[in-house]
Nucleic acid binder design. Structure first.
Length: 423
DNA sequence: TCTGGGGTCCTAGGACCC
DNA sequence: TCTGGGGTCCTAGGACCC
């Protein structure tokens, strides 16, 4: 059996843990730049606030209902996520962290134990240890565990745990599950299936395998099998990322090269850090910038450039150098830029390194510098040491006017050392 | 007149997830 | 005025190989 444990309204719940006066009140959390609603407490959902709605459109609703609004605080949510996962790990050794607020559990070797009792104990303990309410679905496949999880979340009398372990329960649950609510069925597939008169997950399972294969390919066939109780998705072992992206919308529109350069340098440095973290090197770096596509009355510009690196690298200074060169080649005067980003790809493991016969860079030395920098930043707080090109102005910085404190991970005062000095 | 069979790699586009 | 960020997988078609 597979379990899926999912935190209820995760970001909103994190804000509540350190501010219990919010309990019972509508709470929403906004995306970066205070853009869209990305988490809602149940009270906020009841007010009809939709997921993904731009915040400015909700101004009246928020004011008239005294909705508590927060900017997203990923440092806090990341730390709370760790705490949840650690607690779960103390019960089930084989788990796959699927997202910041979800974890799959492989419930093997628990045959002698009553699943319901075990599940309720996990749910109770996580909530007691972390303050985060969670729900657990248990079923023979991951897709069915997702279905079970929705029921556990929706109906109070389940006490946070719903188990699908017989064909009767499976049929009943699937008949009550809209086709669009199935894991792996998004908007497009949902529309297509509705067209064929399939409105519930159960309807879908009643089609023949060959029909599903023909209509939705192997992707649909797997979902079909999973819903019928045959596992197609196993527990996955985390592997190194094949591409890494850092991009942000700017807090205000930027027209000058300088602040955009600073932003791009920061994005490149962030990619480099993520690469080093997973012991990888990137062979290709891509930079993009664009104006605000929603501002249809203003001149639009979108461009990107792909740069093949001479030698695969995870060195911040080198990635910044190439990223800024790329930016120079695509930046055009006369536009109000809204967003930029850096994506690194063709990622390889750091050993063995395929070098370049004519490489003149002292890679050994720069590796050491990066290591020292990472160690300092880990000990004394993020961005304590950075590359000078990352700058200090942060004109590009995000808008997050309603940020809660980093309750669990307070940083010391910032001390910046210019990179040249260390090198 | 009649022209095989079995592969790989790459890319762009489309779908999905949180 | 104000609309997020970061990923993965699959498929079809074209180019190429023997």
């Amino acid at each position: 059996m597979y379990g899926l444990l999912d935190c209820n309204n995760f970001y909103a719940s994190c804000e509540r843990v350190f501010n219990p006066s919010l309990n019972g009140k509508p709470v929403v959390v906004l995306s970066n730049n205070d853009g869209c609603v990305i988490a809602r407490s149940s009270e906020a959902k009841a007010l009809g606030i939709p997921m993904g709605e731009p915040a400015y459109k909700l101004k009246d609703l928020i004011e008239s209902n005294q909705v508590h609004v927060f900017s997203s605080n990923y440092v806090l949510y990341g730390d709370m996520s760790h705490r949840v996962m650690n607690t779960v790990a103390s019960f089930v050794p084989d788990m796959e962290i699927y997202s910041i607020d979800e974890v799959f559990l492989l419930l093997e070797g628990f045959e002698k134990i009553d699943m319901k009792t075990l599940g309720e104990k996990i749910v109770r303990t996580v909530t007691r240890n972390t303050g985060i309410p969670v729900s657990l679905g248990i079923a023979p496949t991951k897709t069915l565990a997702k279905v079970a999880n929705k029921f556990a979340k929706k109906h109070k009398n389940y006490k946070g745990v719903c188990i699908i372990d017989t064909d009767e329960k499976r049929e009943k649950a699937l008949k009550m599950t809209g086709i669009g609510d199935v894991w792996g069925i998004g908007r497009q597939y949902s529309k297509k299936l509705q067209y064929y008169n399939i409105s519930t997950a159960w309807d879908f399972t009643q089609r023949t395998k060959s029909w599903v294969r023909h209509t939705m390919g192997v992707v649909g066939e797997r979902i079909w099998m999973e819903l019928r109780g045959t596992p197609c998705f196993e527990m996955e072992i985390p592997s190194a990322k094949k591409s890494i992206c850092t991009s942000r919308s700017f807090g205000e529109r930027l027209t000058e090269m300088a602040p955009i350069s600073e932003a791009v340098a920061n994005f490149a440095a962030s990619c480099a850090e993520k690469l080093r973290h997973q012991h990888s090197l990137a062979s290709v770096i891509m930079v993009f910038i664009h104006t605000n596509p929603f501002a249809t009355n203003q001149p639009q510009y979108y461009n990107q450039t792909v740069i093949q690196l001479p030698v695969p690298t995870n060195d911040s200074t080198e990635l910044i150098y190439f990223a800024l060169n790329g930016l120079k080649s695509i930046f055009k005067e006369g536009y109000r830029y809204k967003k930029a980003g850096v994506i690194v790809s063709e990622i390889v493991h750091e050993r063995p390194l395929q070098g370049d016969l004519f490489d003149t860079r002292d890679r050994e030395k720069f590796n050491k510098v990066m290591r020292v920098m990472d160690n300092l930043n880990e000990s004394f707080g993020r961005q304590k040491v950075k590359i000078a090109a990352q700058g200090f102005d942060r004109k590009w910085k995000l808008k997050n006017e309603k940020l809660s404190p980093c309750f669990t991970t307070k940083l010391d005062d910032v001390l910046v050392v210019k990179a040249e000095k260390i090198i």
